[in-house]
């Protein structure tokens, strides 16, 4: 698959936006502006960008507790994301959710979740609805290696396969379920191998290579949209920050391992490729960097100046009426 240069540059811009937004969230957390959890996506950005590049606005994404990147990739404005973590009324969930409960149905982000593996079932259900209502839409479930050992993985993937639903399962195998090594909870290192048991295609992808993810997802989304059924992509990747900001990050992995994965940074890899192949120049990348930085600064200012939610709205939306 030949990916046009303009697309590659666009991917670079998007992947950089996630990284710079996340770095801002880390700083904001350290300043005490984020009141609860903050699970950053730093190191894993290539997965969200490579997959969501193929989605239409009305395709639906169901995400995890580590969902900032999925939200941005699906089109949630960075200001609405930062404001949500700040607990402001302008946050994408109006301050009702925080880091783990991001909702923006208007752009097809159907929620991140504090409960592992829920995304698998809900994405399967959305695909069931598309099929029932004869809509050519696709749903995507992002989940981690931790979810792959949860019963919902078995139940959801089995149903998606038996009914040939238009869903793409994207396992982000970052090697640790919170701090438990996947190697210690699975005899087989590949989640993708499990698809053989359920009769759907599964593929291992380098999750730190946005172009590799882009290629694999192109095929999977096409298959789903054409009615040929679900696919599972296992993207091998790594989070370089702690499970959640402020958490002790020792005792389960070595500094050497973290450094080795930092060297495989998906952004640096794409930048060297763009420069190496002459797809973009240094000055062009520097210009993108400056533009993205400006977007993040504007988003931060928006969040900081946003109002708090009105306590009088506390019980709004518990019920539909």
């Amino acid at each position: 698959m030949s990916i046009p240069g303009t697309v590659q540059v666009a991917l670079y811009r998007q992947i950089l936006l996630i990284r710079r937004t996340e770095e801002q969230l880390v700083r904001s957390y350290q300043r005490g502006l984020i009141h609860g959890a903050c699970h950053t996506y730093i190191g894993q950005e290539a997965v969200a960008i490579g997959v969501c590049a193929h989605l239409r606005p009305d395709d639906l994404v169901f995400s995890t507790h580590r969902g900032h990147g999925h939200a941005l990739a699906k089109g949630v404005p960075p200001g609405a994301l930062i404001a949500e973590l700040f607990g402001r009324a302008t946050g994408c969930s109006g301050g009702r959710g925080g880091s783990m409960h991001l909702f923006a149905p208007e752009v097809g982000l159907m929620g991140t979740s504090g409960i592992v593996a829920a995304s698998i079932l809900q994405a399967t259900g959305a695909a069931y609805a598309f099929s029932l209502l004869k809509q050519e839409r696709v749903s995507v479930a992002f989940f981690g290696d931790g979810a792959a050992n949860n019963g919902a993985f078995h139940e959801g993937i089995n149903m998606a396969s038996i009914w040939q639903l238009p869903v793409v399962f994207v396992c982000e195998n970052n090697l640790y379920a919170t701090e438990v090594p996947f190697a210690s909870v699975s005899r087989n290192p590949d989640v993708a191998a499990r698809t053989q048991a359920y009769g759907l295609p599964g593929q291992v992808v380098d999750g730190n290579d946005v172009l590799a993810v882009y290629e694999a997802a192109a095929e999977a989304v096409k298959r789903a949209r054409s009615g040929a059924g679900p696919t599972l992509l296992e993207c091998k990747t790594y989070r370089t920050r702690p499970h959640s900001e402020g958490m002790r990050d020792t005792g389960y992995r070595s500094p050497e391992e973290i450094e080795a994965w930092k060297a495989r940074c998906p952004i640096k890899r794409l930048a060297s490729r763009l420069l190496g192949e002459g797809t973009a120049s240094e000055s062009e990348l520097a210009r993108i960097e400056a533009e993205v930085q400006a977007v993040v600064e504007e988003a931060l200012a928006f969040a900081e100046s946003s109002p708090w939610p009105d306590p009088a709205t506390l019980t709004d939306h518990v019920y539909s009426v």
């Binding site: 639906l60 149905p105 698998i120 079932l121 259900g125 959305a126 695909a127 749903s139 019963g151 149903m159």
Partner: peptide, 21 residues
Amino acid sequence: DTPICERGFTGLCTGAAMAGA
């Protein structure tokens, strides 16, 4: 007709409701 997986098809139906069914 479903497999015997109440958590699974309840989660599935939750997602289907979110998507307009």
